[in-house]
């Protein structure tokens, strides 16, 4: 029988799933993914996690519990760093320990550390470590890694072109309402787990797309542009997400086709508490493009959230018409 590896549908799932899936399947394992986030998963997470944790970590706990008795192993890598000289967040670095010491009766956890802060070569070591736990030979691991990196690159290409990770992963082809209004270009900044988990963000992306919005996410901006912009910061940004968000914000200032910027953050997120503020300052100081921060937590009501989102879109549209008027008369 094939070994069954459980992958929780939380945190970096929408960033790396295609890579992880290919890797494990190449090694002959079977993959089980937890269900889509729902009330039950959220509740399980909230109940089993310390109160102070941020929503995405609580949701992750829920996903772990959803899988716990269905798999042979849980894959919860210690994601210290996925890019040179950068970190993700202390909670990612401590995630397997948090899970192991808060939840009991879990299957063994593959908690290999992935730390590419000093060198990208560590990825191979990490892959070897995972492979050895599954008793795979080195050659097979090397091959699986190559193949999974290819799958990953392909996935990122698709995302860059405008496909949303959940659509690719779940093989959905969204049917969108025909635009009834002028199409707005709205840039959405946020962590992958806030942007692409429809339950967490209360279907925000769908709502936007059905409201004649052309979505642009951080993942669709060219990495080179982001890096170039981020390098102009006074101090090097040491968070992976922070660099992307700041680089994107600075890039917005160079463009005149962005009609509005939405920053989605989770309540209690340490990284967002700083980055959202810095992004807002950068944008507001130099531009008058409409900007809004939407905060989500386990208590946010959908009605209030929708109202804020709609008000924002109305404002953007009003502004557009107004400007169009001015220019046609002027």
């Amino acid at each position: 029988m094939k070994t069954k590896i459980g992958i929780p549908r939380g945190l970096f799932f929408y960033q790396y799933y295609p890579l992880w899936k290919t890797f494990f399947e190449e090694l002959g394992a079977e993959i089980a993914v937890s269900g889509h986030t729902n009330r039950r998963i959220l509740d399980m997470g909230v109940k089993s996690c310390v109160d102070e944790a941020c929503l995405p970590v609580k949701v992750f706990f829920g996903h772990v519990l959803d899988l716990a008795d269905k798999v042979d192993y849980l894959f919860i890598p210690r994601l210290t760093s996925v890019s040179r000289k950068e970190y993700i967040c202390p909670k990612f670095g401590g995630l397997p320990d948090m899970v192991r010491h808060s939840l009991y009766g879990l299957p063994p956890i593959i908690d290999t550390e992935i730390n590419l802060r000093k060198s990208g070569k560590n990825l191979l070591n990490a892959a070897m470590d995972v492979g050895s736990r599954l008793n795979c030979d080195k050659k097979a691991v090397r091959r699986a890694l190559e193949k999974s990196l290819r799958a990953y690159r392909e996935f990122r290409e698709q995302v860059k072109k405008g496909a949303l990770p959940p659509d690719i992963i779940d093989k959905r082809f969204p049917v969108l309402k025909k635009p009834s209004d002028r199409i707005l270009n709205i840039l959405v900044i946020g962590h992958v787990y806030n942007l692409y988990d429809n339950y967490i963000n209360m279907d925000m992306l769908k709502k936007l797309r059905n409201n004649s919005v052309n979505l642009i996410t951080v993942d669709m901006i060219d990495g080179c542009i982001i890096d170039e912009k981020a390098q102009t910061l006074n101090k090097k940004m040491f968070w992976y997400f922070g660099r992307k968000a700041m680089g994107t914000a600075l890039h917005v200032l160079d463009r005149n086709d962005i009609d509005g910027v939405i920053y989605v953050m989770s309540f209690g997120c340490g990284v967002d508490s700083f980055i959202s503020d810095l992004v807002e300052k950068k944008i507001r100081r130099k531009s008058d493009v409409p900007f809004i921060i939407l905060t989500i937590d386990e208590h946010s009501g959908e009605a209030g959230f929708n109202t804020r989102l709609e008000a924002f879109l109305d404002m953007v549209r009003w502004r557009y018409r107004h400007e169009a008027d001015v220019s046609s008369h002027g």
Partner: peptide
Amino acid sequence: PLTCMPEIVAESILPA
């Protein structure tokens, strides 16, 4: 302090 990231991790482990 509330929202302190590293200590939230520690808090989850302390019960063990």
